[in-house]
């Protein structure tokens, strides 16, 4: 049962986006549509899972002094795989994510988990940690994207592969007069600031409750 803890901690308690504050660039860059958040989340989840398993399996072979370049090569290889697969099978997602897709290489979450977790733990624990962190990241992205899309353009894009294959929920009222600024760059930073404040406030309230008990 101890393994389950590795899986669940990434989702809430150590959520990579809101609690540890890692990997900000893709978080804010792609969250204009809910569907983009799914695409980014899935890509990061795959890269994180691959790199964590690989690095954890090789942790006794990689010499300590060159571990960072070795990790970067492993991560970059998985990112290249994701890029090629998305380009070939779902070009719509590939185009929507644009330059943020290759930038997964420098996403601090992945290097951070490799350095802080995968090089000290077994393959199974590392894989569970990666899945948990990846799900936590996806949920955080979806939350930000949902806020920005619902208020910024009055729609929720659940599926958008082409003009004919799409599923968009339109919210009456909001879609005629949306708060357009939320879909722009400034809105992303504002939403992130308020969400971070909310999570800080919630965390403090929980520790205060725990202390009183």
């Amino acid at each position: 049962m101890a393994h389950i803890k590795e899986l669940t901690k990434g989702i809430f308690k150590e959520n990579p986006t809101f609690i540890i504050m890692l990997g900000m660039c893709p978080t804010l860059g792609v969250t204009t549509q809910v569907f983009n958040a799914f695409g980014m989340g899935a890509s990061v989840l795959f890269v994180l899972l691959g790199s964590n398993i690989f690095i954890s399996a090789l942790r006794k072979i990689i010499p300590d002094s060159i571990r960072i370049p070795a990790y970067i090569v492993v991560i970059a290889s998985f990112v290249t795989i994701v890029e090629m697969v998305l380009h070939a099978f779902v070009p719509a997602v590939f185009n929507a994510l644009g330059v943020y897709l290759p930038l997964i290489v420098v996403n601090c979450i992945i290097l951070g988990r490799a350095e802080a977790f995968a090089n000290k733990n077994t393959v199974l624990d590392s894989a569970l940690d990666a899945v948990g962190m990846g799900i936590g990241f996806t949920l955080a992205l979806t939350l930000i994207a949902a806020i920005r899309e619902i208020f910024g353009s009055g729609t929720i894009t659940l599926f958008n592969l082409s003009e004919t294959q799409r599923l968009v929920i339109t919210i009456p009222g909001l879609s005629e007069s949306p708060v357009r600024v939320l879909t722009l760059a400034a809105g992303a930073l504002l939403v992130m600031g308020y969400l971070k404040a909310f999570f800080t406030w919630r965390g403090e309230r929980r520790t205060a409750k725990g202390g009183a008990r």
Partner: peptide, 14 residues
């Protein structure tokens, strides 16, 4: 209190 540090930095950046 909840806004000190990083959250207010994000809002200023926004």
């Amino acid at each position: 209190k909840a806004f000190t540090g990083v959250p207010i930095a994000f809002i200023s950046a926004g």
